[in-house]
Design a protein around this nucleic acid. Structure first.
Length: 871
RNA sequence: GCCGGGGUGGCGGAACUGGUAGACGCGCCGGAUUCAAAAUCCGGUUCUGGCAACAGAGUGGGGGUUCGAUUCCCCCCCCCGGCACCA
């Protein structure tokens, strides 16, 4: 180190960061301009204001800020807004615990989380902040809901919910634990209640087709959405049953001749009618009602059923087939009934074997072998390469031919037709909860359900109520409920259900550009910024939120409110934040969890963990593995505490360095320490440089640089190219940071010999500061100033790669024998293969491995590798 | 159960288009500095054998394609996300 120089001022983020932030505020550095120019809308999923910022938020907004700041340095006009997904269940739970109204709790949380976000130095345009619990926002939920009613996109029908018989209340799936109510422990039942639905299935085909144009989305998200929408082509078949007809939908009409029974869902109208006269069936249906409504719960339960005693007629043969009620048939999919072909469907096969129903093979496949009706094989349900057997006139046909022929014959008889079925269901938006957006409907005894007139919007949610766990307090608030019918003027009652919070989050990004408009939901500014260029959020939202937002956008488009078809051009799904867990177990088997900050880890001389002890009492704790940061495991790390200790830049640097954005990130206090050391070193090195030389904007004369300096210059421009690609295209911020660190390691070892070398150092340090600026903006602004540059580093433009600096004098290539590396060669770039082959074979180390062998082939990859194949 | 993703040193991760496995950081070991410690700086660090030169093995497990596989294909194991009322 340059020992003569006096100790340079040391890095002090606690002093730098507030000062830089104040400067940004003063200059309105983060304000976005609605005017012309190249624009970039950079958006992260808005947070639920749960109280404090957690690491997941920190990571999400950190990623967004890096992209926003990088785009700004590219010269684009950037919009990075922030808002609050402020309605929802946790506010009600908090209210139950401490008696504070959800509104107060929510707004207090927003205030403290806003302060935390500011301290992290994100380039957010706070002028556009919104909260979904503000009437100015949710009035437009109500307004659009009314437009949907007019277009019949919104409608009313019954839906199934989790019912807690003790609390007499509807439970969220989250509140059902092992089929029991979370507070009462009572066995939950399914119950049907009237609800409002939005017709997302009308848009199913478009939602599926448009996935193709979303090339900026991760492939896996598009696949998940396509599977969720679940388009199937098949045949609707009618089975006459007395006076009625049982409709089923099947994708395997080719196996119709193998149908041996029908199964209907417990909620099917036919089952209900049989139950009127059959106590046994009524009992069975009641049993099926037990437990929660979630698909995971329904899908994992044991398959059970019961014969209704009814028979239906096979539409082609007229044969009588028994009709069963079965708990594995979903009322929500298709027609709520299935034709069972046990020979070629795994679930039907298991069911038929359990209840002794006939199994008939009607499909043959070359790979099938002897059909065994006791053991299922996956080949039995194959549809490629099959031939029909035992199917009378259809014998010998393949899947396509058989489906076509059977559909045609059914259609002739008026007992079926080809059609498309989607797995996607319409979106039920009614919630029997208080803390949400009121559904703008008035119930009148004379006029029925009457929409609230536009001029009476918003229907304001009273903010002074406190839920107690036994149903919505809104449903008991006479003041809210009592009103007069807009149509006839007679006394009437307000709807007390509120909207699903997914409604709030389905369009907030279209409101940011025009938050101040109290005359319209959106305006021209929305069209100016939309679609969002880059959307960032958790992978857990891959299906529901993103699908609802896409649907809502298309509805708004069809109402002429916006111009775009899709809301998000590019999507980045960030991984979760994890941390090590530690616990102790008492005799009763209950665990006490220790926060990682209270645990000391001991290691052996190879760095392997030997034991972990509690700092409080020095006694051992058990490492419980790495898990998602959660209160229940007490493994959360508080970002604010770390910011207080190391400054925002260090926390930001570590969280971007530890893993690429799409992967999960394992928190490590030691890793934060490493990030801190790097920033400190960077700061010191720049101080050392400016103490000796300061010529802002200086560039070296490349022709007069020595070989060492030329190498530094080559590495610099290689690094600029690498970081640009990592930040702008790949979003691999971890490798961008690694590249900067690597270059800084080289640069600090370089000893400038003359002024020209010093100019190179000036160029290098200025570039390094620019490259790191999107990630650690405060220290970058400070060092930019220290290097003598005027103005903000974010206004200076992005460093450009000088192609001429990239030329290499020599390249190292490896020599392999039979694919194993045996030697290395130092040659000029572009050396021809004949020369390389000769030199490689003559190489002493290589020759050893060629001894006694015949060379069969030599593979040369220019400037990279020579592989000699010999035996 | 169904759909989607992941598994690489003691740890987080890198290897972008089939071409040097382990960049960068942490931890650990050794050294410098210090009265001492912390901090800082320098060097080493995949595993096994060997004083070393070097050799062999190695990307969850098994098989395949290829001159060459962390990367492509098939089977299996484990972990994570979603499953429509958590957000």
């Amino acid at each position: 180190m340059t020992d003569q120089t006096p100790a340079p001022t040391t890095y002090n983020p606690q002093a730098i960061e507030p000062e830089i932030q104040a400067r940004w505020d003063e200059q309105g550095a983060h304000r976005s301009d609605d005017g012309a120019g190249q624009r970039y809308y950079c958006l992260s999923m808005f947070p639920y204001p749960s109280g404090k910022l957690h690491m997941g938020h920190m990571r999400n907004y950190g990623i967004c800020d890096v992209i926003a700041r990088y785009q700004k340095m590219q010269g684009r006009g950037v919009l990075q807004p922030m808002g609050w997904d402020a309605f929802g269940l946790p506010a009600e739970n908090a209210a139950m615990q401490n008696g504070v109204p959800p509104a107060r709790w929510t707004r207090d949380n927003i205030a403290s989380m806003r302060a935390q976000l500011k301290a992290l130095g994100f380039a957010i345009d706070w002028d556009r902040e919104l909260a979904t619990c503000d009437p100015e926002y949710y009035r437009w939920n109500q307004w659009l809901f009314l437009r949907m009613l007019e277009k019949d996109i919104a409608y009313k029908k019954t839906g199934v919910v989790n019912w807690d018989p003790v609390d007499q209340t509807v439970l969220a799936n989250e509140q059902v634990i092992d089929g029991k109510g979370w507070r009462t422990g009572a066995e939950v039942e399914k119950r049907e209640i009237p609800m409002y639905y939005l017709g997302i299935t009308t848009y199913a085909q478009e939602l599926l087709d448009d996935l193709e144009q979303l090339s900026g989305w991760p492939e896996r998200v598009r696949t998940m959405q396509a599977n969720w929408i679940g388009r199937s082509e098949g045949v609707e078949i009618h089975f006459p049953c007395g006076e009625e007809v049982i409709r089923v939908f099947t994708t395997r009409a080719d196996t119709l001749m193998g149908a041996t029974y029908l199964a209907v869902a417990a909620e099917h109208p036919l089952a209900a009618r049989v139950a009127e006269t059959s106590p046994a069936i009524a009992e069975f249906i009641a049993e099926c009602r037990r437990g929660g409504v979630s698909e995971a719960q329904v899908a994992t339960q044991e398959k059970r059923g019961m014969d209704t005693g009814l028979t239906a007629l096979h539409p082609l043969t007229g044969e009588e087939l028994p009709v069963w009620v079965a708990n594995y048939v979903l009322m929500a999919y298709g027609e709520g009934a299935v034709m069972a072909v046990p020979g070629h469907d795994e679930r039907d096969f298991a069911f038929a074997n359990k209840y002794g129903l006939p199994i008939v093979q009607v499909v043959d496949h070359p790979d099938m072998g002897e059909y065994d009706s006791r053991t299922w094989q996956d080949i039995y349900s194959e549809k490629e390469g099959i031939t029909l057997i035992g199917s009378g006139p259809y014998d010998g046909l393949d899947f396509q031919q058989a489906t076509r022929a059977i559909a045609r014959d059914l259609e002739k008889k008026g007992l079926g037709k080809r059609r498309v079925q989607f797995r996607l269901r319409d979106w039920g938006v009614s919630r029997q909860r208080y803390w949400g957006c009121p559904i703008p409907i008035i119930h009148c005894d004379e006029c029925g359900d009457v929409p609230v007139p536009d001029e009476d919007l918003p229907v304001v949610l009273p903010e002074n109520l406190v839920p107690d766990g036994a149903g919505s307090p809104l449903a008991r608030s006479e003041e809210f409920i009592r009103c007069s019918c807009p149509r006839c003027g007679r006394p009437a009652r307000r709807e007390t259900d509120t909207m699903d919070t997914f409604v709030d989050s389905s369009w907030y990004f279209m409101r940011y550009p025009c938050v101040d408009n109290d005359q319209a939901m959106v305006d021209e500014r929305t069209n100016g910024w939309m679609p969002v260029d880059q959307y960032i959020g958790g992978i857990e939202h891959a299906i529901l939120h993103l699908l609802y937002a896409r649907f809502w956008t298309k509805v708004m488009r069809d109402l002429g409110l916006v111009e775009h078809d899709e809301p998000f051009a590019h999507l980045l799904t960030q991984g979760m934040v994890l941390a090590e867990t530690y616990y102790r177990e008492d005799e009763a088997g209950s665990k006490t969890w220790f926060n990682p900050s209270e645990v000391e880890v001991r290691r052996d001389e190879k760095g392997r963990v030997t034991e972990a002890v509690s700092m409080a009492d020095g006694r051992p704790v058990v490492p419980g593995g790495v898990e998602k940061m959660a209160k229940s495991k007490n493994n959360g790390v508080d970002p604010q505490e770390l910011v207080g200790r190391y400054g925002a830049d260090t926390v930001r640097l570590f969280s971007m360095f530890a893993a690429p954005p799409e992967q999960s990130l394992e928190w490590s206090d030691a890793g934060v320490e490493g990030a801190w050391r790097f920033l400190r070193r960077l700061f010191q090195q720049v101080q050392v440089h400016v103490a000796e030389f300061r010529d802002p904007g200086a560039r070296p004369d490349a022709d007069k640089l020595g070989p060492e300096a030329l190498e530094i210059r080559r590495l610099l421009h290689e690094t600029i190219g690498k970081v640009d690609d990592d930040l702008g295209r790949r979003f691999t911020f971890n490798t961008a940071i690694a590249a900067v660190m690597e270059f800084v390691n080289h640069l600090s070892r370089f000893k400038p010999r003359d002024t020209n070398d010093q100019r190179l150092c000036q160029e290098a340090w200025e570039s390094v500061v620019c490259l790191i600026a999107p990630i650690t903006p405060h220290i970058a602004e400070q060092l930019w100033e220290d290097l003598g540059r005027e103005g903000s580093v974010f206004e200076c433009g992005w460093p450009a790669v000088d192609e001429t600096a990239l030329a290499r004098q020599a390249v190292t290539l490896v020599v392999q024998v039979n694919g194993k590396v045996r030697s290395r060669l130092e040659v000029a770039p572009g050396t021809d293969r004949e020369y390389l082959t000769r030199v490689a074979c003559e190489d002493e180390k290589v020759a050893r491995f060629l001894d006694g062998k015949t060379i069969r082939k030599v593979i040369v990859v220019p400037d990279k590798l020579v592989n000699i194949v010999a035996n």
